[in-house]
Nucleic acid binder design. Structure first.
Lengths: 138, 138
DNA sequence: AAGAAAGCCTATAAAATAAATAGGGTTTAT
DNA sequence: ATAAACCCTATTTATTTTATAGGCTTTCTT
């Protein structure tokens, strides 16, 4: 399951995607719309900004805005950013690799091999679904 | 990512699958093979037994054994049993449905709709990969 | 220039979940 | 009768997630 962080990020991105006509959107407005903690959401938007998905304007009259096309924001990107690995095991993670302590030999581990296949197929799904798909379904 | 519970369960199932020739396998042997806590693994095997994947024999000379064909044990089953939902959001979970607090209207939520598609495609993967695939890759 | 509005940043606290441990109960072979 | 092994439930510990806190910096407006 996705963490609340990722879920809130998706809601925020959706909100921002719906309001691309206005220059900026306030954290406050997104938080209120979904009944989310303002401060918690603030941290999330910060991360999305650092990752290059959002732009922001400081000071009075400021706020956030999308700087990518919704079709160029795949779910895989958002999930990796906030939740980490998409792979089901650390030993087959592309971006967050770690060996499994209980594994005798990675080279001959059937679990690893199957999980690598699962990862590849899962990635195909999550790379193909984008914010645009969410927006067209709203 | 899978919890350690699920990961250990897969290791245990793999071990049991490799030793189908012997009548029973001791918790102890599986735990030792992978350096896992005996007691923790005991709880896991209990769950697998209650779910109908394993049989057991009590008392001296007892132990666990597979009671299903490896090809009839899909990853989806093991994951659901020990980790819970396969869906990425509670509002699209088949077996563990719950509404999302921050969602104004499930009927018109684009996130929900896309996540339902993701769930369907993910399920296809996890229902098609079985313990047998793991065993043939060892 | 001053004040208020808004994002930026880091740290900490609280809550929830996962992992591990504990210990006695029951069954069965010898 | 004894020892080996699984059965069951509860508790503790560790880890992670969620939320909060508070001051800093930037920018607009007057």
């Amino acid at each position: 399951m996705l963490s609340k962080k990722t879920k809130y990020a998706l809601h925020a991105l959706t909100y921002l995607g719906k309001h691309r006509d206005t220059k900026t959107v306030l954290i406050h407005d997104i938080a209120e719309e979904h009944g989310i903690s303002h401060k918690f959401l603030e941290n999330i938007l910060l991360e999305l900004k650092k990752a290059g998905l959002l732009g922001s304007k400081k000071g009075k009259g400021g706020g956030y805005y999308l700087i990518k096309e919704p079709k160029d924001i795949p779910l895989s990107k958002v999930i990796r950013l906030l939740d980490g690995p998409i792979a089901l095991l650390p030993c087959v993670s592309i971006n967050y690799y770690e060996p499994c302590a209980e594994c005798k030999s990675e080279a001959s581990c059937g679990i690893k091999k199957v999980m690598a296949q699962v990862r590849d197929e899962t990635l195909k799904i999550l790379e193909n679904k984008t914010l645009d798909d969410i927006l067209t379904n709203e």
